[in-house]
Simulated assay, not measured.
Amino acid sequence: MSKELTTTPNIDTQTVYLFDLDNTLYPPEKNLFAHVDVRMTSFIEEKLKLTHDEAFHIQKKYWKEYGTTLSGLMQIHGLEPDEFLDFVHDIDVSPLTPDPELSNALANLPGKKYIFTNGTQKHAERVSDRLGVLHHFDDIFDIRAADYVPKPDRNVYHKLIANYDIKPEETIFFEDMARNLLPAHELGMTTVWLKPKLSENAPEHSKIGHEGADGDHIHYVIDNLVDFLSLMNGK
């Protein structure tokens, strides 16, 4: 499935790096997404006049079937997306702390760097700023830039490529959701899966991160982003 980590992708000033945000730029142990999760359920409960359990079921069902809960709400209920996005991403990011090792690793990468997220630009800015790495990124391609269509829809990847005039064969994509790497591979990108840890108490997001992990579309499997970036840099 993956190449040995004694080898890394070749990089130079033409290389483009795409980074997922949540549970990729910071470890899932921070459990930040759990706060978004709670607010999603609360929003659905109020908006659709459901019980808490019914809202939670709908939230997870749409996430699994449509790529994001929002996508399901838009397609099934005709929800206007901005109210939902602003509400669910209004979370406390203080559990995150500056990550100087990540900052150094990103600084040493030659070439352009982008955040590629199913979340909002504001959320990505708040998270990456809290980590102390926002200044390393050339731009953020968020769910609004994708016309509210989430990864892993192939059209979103085409839109991103066209938006930044990216050459897929010179692009490396880092992501914790294995299924989101398939379109990237098919388009010619190098893919790196930050494999979520599984345990009896692992969050559901980590379990879903393993869906679609079988196949040749995952080129590298890693468990620590900073270590891999440092290895790529030869540091």
Rank of each mutant, 00 (worst) to 15 (best):
19 F>R: 00
12 D>Q: 11
202 A>G: 11
126 R>D: 13
198 L>W: 02
235 K>I: 11
112 K>Q: 15
140 I>F: 09
132 G>T: 07
60 K>V: 14
125 E>S: 10
57 H>S: 11
218 I>T: 00
43 F>C: 05
125 E>C: 04
54 E>G: 14
35 H>G: 03
221 V>Q: 04
113 K>T: 14
163 N>R: 08
180 N>F: 04
213 A>Y: 15
160 L>N: 01
10 N>F: 06
102 L>H: 11
98 P>H: 08
192 V>C: 06
56 F>N: 14
150 P>G: 02
26 Y>T: 11
157 Y>R: 02
44 I>Y: 02
196 P>M: 06
152 P>N: 09
183 P>T: 07
147 D>P: 03
137 F>H: 04
72 G>R: 01
19 F>G: 10
22 D>L: 15
108 N>F: 05
40 M>N: 01
187 L>F: 04
11 I>T: 10
174 F>S: 06
132 G>N: 11
114 Y>R: 07
115 I>L: 14
164 Y>W: 12
225 L>R: 05
173 F>L: 13
218 I>E: 00
220 Y>F: 12
134 L>T: 11
91 I>L: 10
153 D>S: 09
174 F>G: 05
163 N>M: 07
208 I>D: 05
139 D>G: 02
41 T>Q: 05
231 L>G: 01
65 E>W: 08
89 H>W: 08
38 V>Y: 07
118 N>Q: 13
224 N>V: 10
125 E>Q: 14
57 H>D: 03
33 F>P: 01
138 D>P: 10
234 G>E: 01
190 T>Q: 10
130 R>I: 01
80 E>N: 13
65 E>C: 04
226 V>K: 05
98 P>R: 05
223 D>L: 10
235 K>M: 07
156 V>Y: 10
106 L>P: 12
48 L>Y: 08
75 Q>R: 09
221 V>R: 00
180 N>K: 04
115 I>R: 02
109 L>V: 14
142 D>Q: 02
22 D>Y: 15
121 Q>P: 08
144 R>W: 06
47 K>C: 12
204 E>G: 15
186 E>W: 11
101 E>M: 12
6 T>L: 06
170 E>S: 14
148 Y>R: 02
160 L>V: 05
117 T>D: 10
197 K>I: 02
29 E>K: 04
207 K>C: 07
55 A>S: 12
184 A>G: 14
86 D>F: 08
217 H>T: 02
214 D>G: 06
82 D>W: 13
209 G>P: 00
177 M>H: 10
100 P>I: 12
157 Y>K: 00
191 T>M: 04
90 D>N: 14
4 E>N: 13
37 D>E: 12
73 L>V: 05
85 L>W: 14
183 P>M: 04
44 I>E: 00
75 Q>T: 12
113 K>D: 05
167 K>M: 12
202 A>F: 04
171 T>D: 13
53 D>N: 08
214 D>V: 03
22 D>P: 07
15 T>V: 08
92 D>A: 08
33 F>K: 01
191 T>L: 01
139 D>S: 03
54 E>A: 15
216 D>S: 13
23 N>Q: 08
108 N>A: 14
207 K>G: 06
27 P>K: 06
147 D>T: 11
105 A>N: 14
72 G>D: 00
25 L>T: 09
216 D>L: 12
90 D>F: 06
89 H>M: 09
18 L>G: 00
83 E>N: 11
44 I>H: 03
8 T>L: 04
233 N>E: 01
207 K>E: 12
95 P>L: 09
108 N>D: 15
149 V>F: 10
56 F>K: 15
